[in-house]
């Protein structure tokens, strides 16, 4: 067992995930007022349309793809006749589509954030760091889709499942190409950073809006 691997693929992920979980709880308790999307549409609307729409739908697809492809063992897919070859093909084409959308979107957003005078003035360093980190993770991810052609189903995917199920196996990451490792490590760093950024708005997806009564009434003094 390699110490460096152990540090990078067991200690570091859990460190990041701990910060991720505790960080969100801490932020929610101490900074409810700051917990929002920090939208800048009010300051600039036209170029936001393409950027935000592409980025968000692309990211939703990307996250869904990662969850479905990496967290569900290939053995389960095999049982329903969906073999690794087909799985990789689906992953390639769908990943290409949502990855290009997300990358195009994030680049449009980055350009807008750096060049629009109002958005730049109203934005914070935190916003720029968040967007820069997203760009890096997405770009490396898309690079892997286009140029990687590496079968992650037997190495990377079981490693992730090991992390999630608290049975980490750092050795699984040994044969994984560098560009994939970079993607994993930067994505983990982004996860650790996210509770302290505007990304917390992901957890406020307004699902209850679809079921609640249109009008909300509240008492000033709650009834005893």
């Amino acid at each position: 067992m390699n110490l460096a691997d152990e540090l990078l693929y067991t200690v570091y992920p859990y460190l990041c995930l701990t910060v991720f979980v505790v960080g969100h709880a801490y932020r929610y308790v101490t900074d409810r007022f700051g917990w929002n999307a920090r939208s800048s549409e009010f300051l600039e609307k036209k170029s936001l349309w393409a950027g935000s729409t592409l980025f968000h739908w692309g990211m939703l697809g990307t996250l869904g793809g990662h969850a479905g492809g990496l967290l569900i063992p290939q053995a389960w897919f095999d049982r329903v006749g969906f073999d690794a070859r087909a799985h990789m093909a689906v992953a390639y084409w769908s990943g290409l589509a949502v990855g290009i959308a997300a990358l195009a979107g994030v680049l449009l957003l980055l350009r807008r954030r750096l060049t629009d005078r109002r958005v730049r003035a109203a934005g914070s360093m935190n916003d720029r760091v968040t967007l820069g980190a997203l760009t890096l993770v997405i770009a490396v991810g898309l690079f892997n889709v286009v140029f990687g052609h590496y079968n992650v189903l037997d190495t990377l995917a079981p490693w992730i499942r090991g992390i999630v199920t608290f049975t980490p196996e750092a050795a699984l990451m040994g044969p994984v190409p560098v560009s994939y490792k970079v993607h994993v490590l930067t994505a983990l760093a982004l996860l650790a950073y996210s509770p302290f950024s505007r990304l917390v708005h992901i957890w406020s997806a307004p699902v209850t809006y679809f079921v609640r009564a249109p009008l909300v009434f509240r008492r000033r003094v709650p009834e005893a």
């Binding site: 307004p206 809006y209 609640r212 009008l215 909300v216 009434f217 509240r218 008492r219 000033r220 003094v221």
Partner: peptide, 14 residues
């Protein structure tokens, strides 16, 4: 109030 996805806007009963 009806437009708010978060349910943050409300009308006071009193």
């Amino acid at each position: 109030v009806a437009s708010c996805p978060s349910g943050a806007l409300y009308k006071r009963e009193e």
